[in-house]
Design a protein around this nucleic acid. Sequence first.
DNA 1: TCGAATTTGTGCGTATGTATC
DNA 2: GGATACATACGCACAAATTCG
Lengths: 259, 259
Amino acid sequence: MDEGNRYLPIADVLRQRIRSGDLAEGDQLPSIPELMRTHGVSNAVARKVLRTLVSEGLAIARSGSGTYVRERPERQILVRSWHRNARGGSPFAIEMAGQARIGSWDYTSRTVCAPEGVRRRLGLEGPGDDDVPDAMETSYVFRGDSEPVQLSTSYEPLSLVRGTPIVLPEEGPQARKGVVERMRTIGVTVTHSAELVSARLVTVVEARQLDVAPGDIVLVIERTYYADTRPVETADIVIPVARFQVLYGTSTWDAPAGE
Amino acid sequence: MDEGNRYLPIADVLRQRIRSGDLAEGDQLPSIPELMRTHGVSNAVARKVLRTLVSEGLAIARSGSGTYVRERPERQILVRSWHRNARGGSPFAIEMAGQARIGSWDYTSRTVCAPEGVRRRLGLEGPGDDDVPDAMETSYVFRGDSEPVQLSTSYEPLSLVRGTPIVLPEEGPQARKGVVERMRTIGVTVTHSAELVSARLVTVVEARQLDVAPGDIVLVIERTYYADTRPVETADIVIPVARFQVLYGTSTWDAPAGE
DNA sequence: TCGAATTTGTGCGTATGTATC
DNA sequence: GGATACATACGCACAAATTCG
């Protein structure tokens, strides 16, 4: 006789009240005992209702205090690329306005045997040998206004940079110059790049570095620079979705058809 | 005396066994009764252990069968744009090889009063009136090889398309042609587009449409087409990261510096 | 500063429904 | 149909965090 899911309709009611604005951002949701009284259910059901809303990202539970409608601060926009002939039309200018600037960064460099995925992206042959380093790995924490913005782990093949003045990306005369400039000094002309975008839950370590809550979602961008057909650098870039969106600008003649 | 979190160490053990490969992809995890016996805990704790692993994306629960280590099939690549002068170098060609093709789609169109976020993107003034529709909304389900690939909800301002042959995007002579072609027939030249990328948990409705598990993560792309400075179409595109990655190709002279 | 009240988090035991094999 | 396993539900207890008099 029981439909089995007594928590769903109750969650629906609260969801609706949030969407309609009846419950505004920051407002406290009914507590567990309150839901038990008003809907005549047990604590397990009332708990499940609130947990469901939290897991959907609509609410935040504060232990000892209550469950509240989640506040969504304006997210800043990280501009990763736009086409140069998409010159500053006003809608673009508006979108650029809130753009996040990367001001400072920390880094550490070391030689490693590149992991499997990176091997594929850099075109390194074979499975690799832990005792034979074949890539320079550099890990960055980027900040804007002293707030952490993104993490990046970059790999450059040692076969390319070993023995050159730019082995260590952030040391020497070419430090802080970016991959394209640095590669130019050793005669490598970067012609284009590819960015493979995905997303996943943040790891514990990343959550601490980015100052976000565990369970948050991050965008993961695998960016690879090419000199013609040869990959010369690849990086895993991690961006917290709670605070940032990523903007790609494209020219329409490149856009895929049929959508 | 109780440390309070009896499920955490048990979850750690299973996490370790998964990471080490002791439990391979597709293997069945210990069931709830099994965990109760082997660790001497109640069903609530055993349940919490498994639910924790599922929520971390490490396992999948199949009702009536068991909980299994999640399998991660190769993800296909959705190419959203690449620069025309990034012509088929071999690494690109390789990346294109596994590319997902959109073959068919369903859709439904209706006039609506555009929601808040869409109003901003389309440059519609004022808060909008529920009784006064000002946009044509079209919802798509795209499929490739009959498998759902992405969802899209598109908005075009009625002030632009009302009374034209293309009011209904998927009807009439310009159906199935894409935004750029359709707009051209009414004298609107689309010059460029912007894609704002983010991610979030999938909604229940989307999970059913895309045939993914609830709790999965989706990429959300807000794509807007512009005719010079005027936005002429915007869409919310939803892509499940469990099966797809999105590829953006860029020219290096556009790339942001300092990374 | 302390303590009482409130609220969430975790835990125990048990029962029923339902999907899978 | 029967055995197994997960999902949901009920009631109760205590710990930890927060709030406030």
